[in-house]
Design a protein around this nucleic acid. Sequence first.
DNA 1: CTTGGCACTCGATGAATCGGAGTGCCAGAG
DNA 2: CTCTGGCACTCCGATTCATCGAGTGCCAAG
Lengths: 344, 344
Amino acid sequence: MVSERSLAVLHAIIGDYVETNEPVGSKTIVERHSFGVSAATIRNDMALLEDEELIAAPHTSSGRVPTDKGYRLYVDTLASVRPLSSAQRIAIERFLGESRDLDDVLARTVRLLAQLTNQVAVVQYPSLRRTQVRHIDLVAVGENRVLCVLILGTGVVEQQVASLPAAQVTETWVHGLRERIAGTMVGLDLEAAGDAMRALSGTVDEWAQPDEAELVRRIADVILAQLQANRSERITIAGAANLSRPGEFSGTLPSVLEAIEEQVTLLRLFGELARDGRDVAASIGRENEPYGLQGAAVIATGYEREGETSSGIGVLGPVRMDYASNISAVRAVARYLSGVLGEG
Amino acid sequence: MVSERSLAVLHAIIGDYVETNEPVGSKTIVERHSFGVSAATIRNDMALLEDEELIAAPHTSSGRVPTDKGYRLYVDTLASVRPLSSAQRIAIERFLGESRDLDDVLARTVRLLAQLTNQVAVVQYPSLRRTQVRHIDLVAVGENRVLCVLILGTGVVEQQVASLPAAQVTETWVHGLRERIAGTMVGLDLEAAGDAMRALSGTVDEWAQPDEAELVRRIADVILAQLQANRSERITIAGAANLSRPGEFSGTLPSVLEAIEEQVTLLRLFGELARDGRDVAASIGRENEPYGLQGAAVIATGYEREGETSSGIGVLGPVRMDYASNISAVRAVARYLSGVLGEG
DNA sequence: CTTGGCACTCGATGAATCGGAGTGCCAGAG
DNA sequence: CTCTGGCACTCCGATTCATCGAGTGCCAAG
């Protein structure tokens, strides 16, 4: 276990290194931070930290640089998350009150976060798995098409046309079917509605004419697809230009760009981080290896929508980043977003 | 005017420079290309090219590098666009036959183009301005909501709910309104339909009860918004990871990343390039200055959908790129895309 | 446990050197 | 008028070498 002071030294090293991007030596530390001890003592502590693999020396007899493990301990022992500057608070305020629809709020939020942190910001769209089906409609369009309209609790409207094989459907028949389906589905969340829909589709022979069963199954499939589409998740990204800051992201820039393009990778990563624990989580360097993002660090948390935790929000940046500021920025923006979405 | 051979020298210089990324001198040229003349003669030609500002020397007495103007003349005089390699043809073939919906086709296409060229590929979604309105439906949802459903010639279905102020609408009233609107709009393209809609909304007092006029206007506004939304244009992008190749894009990487994020910039640029002329167009270096993309080159052309030119497709890369290959790749993929979309 | 001292390491910096690729120009040949 | 070989000149880039200094590790003393 590392001593109290050694930990303070680690914090000092990381603080200086993040700021200057240069290996930091014992002398620099005693100059810039007022430890009450001499450089030699610091050196002893640093040797200790090096034994623990929390810091490393790029070359023999040069300053030290934090390792992934060092960063990890750092964020875990980060007590005082630096409060936001007043300029940052103002920036957040400016975005309040202008909220429009969900897309707009998320787009503004992700840009805000990118601007605050100077990193790539990522916001996951709310998971709608727990959203309810508010309304369902079937509309005959021509003789062999039925338009299936689904209105969800969030106000999202989903529609799709089911093409039927050469059968002529009547307005009244469609109406009857609609009543039956709506009766079983409306009010349920997407997951339960899907189950109900499958059950209905399975027992179709019991209540429908044989020659109509096929039609019902077709329509049921379309509705199932619609339910499924709304459970699928997306993310929105901003601040990609921050990736071009030179020096950072030494060799792993390609994989980061790929991850941004893929989306699915980031989705998994953010989902994971947002899920466990209520507070802001970080994943640093090698910890991201399963996602091909060693070289990068991710800070993420969940935000709430109408009272329940829905999805992830956070930033993606180089391992050498200002965790204190960025963690508090992510936390603040997540709270703000939860507030805005809580009202609606 | 530059002589025949000087032009050939320019081509040689650009060819070598693109390949090696190093200033190319007279000696290198006589070695690698079989001009029938000596290095001194090449030097004379190079002096001439330099007078014309087609090439420039980074330092006194070093090889020459093409200028933007040089690249411009190069692509303008590019006669034999190199045919695709068989491997590339196979890659294209593999994407055939798997076409599904429009989104899928475009997503595959843009990735294909990125892979073929090793650049950032951009495909503009088809402009729907000339698409016809195929069907319109109004469905009463509850007492004070009307769902407006628009089905377009492309199969796209657009829907939106119009909220009405405390008025109870009857099923029959909605039906009547639907008939009237459908009668004036169905069969028109989006632009004309918008005009018709506005006209209808303007004369509402002549044929509707005074207390219903407001409802009609509300509904009309929603439909207008739907029409507008479908005229708006989008692009899809792939191959952003190719930006990370080092050395290229010396200092302008940030602006390129911004442009990709903005989309609207690229939309204007590609729209412009796809519009003029039928063949592949290029915009090189400073020519992109109005878009903040000096430092980059764009190769673009239009593709056809159901017989008429609809939108742009192309690649974005560093000025120093293989124009011959990339132009032919863009052309080939555009043709392939036109073929696929022509059938549907 | 801390501290000052000291020898040592090793990368960074800068000057000096050198080689060579490349140019520009000229005079002569076709 | 064009091409060619030759030649002097320039200047970049790599190499070498010496030096500097920040920083370490270790030790013996407080």
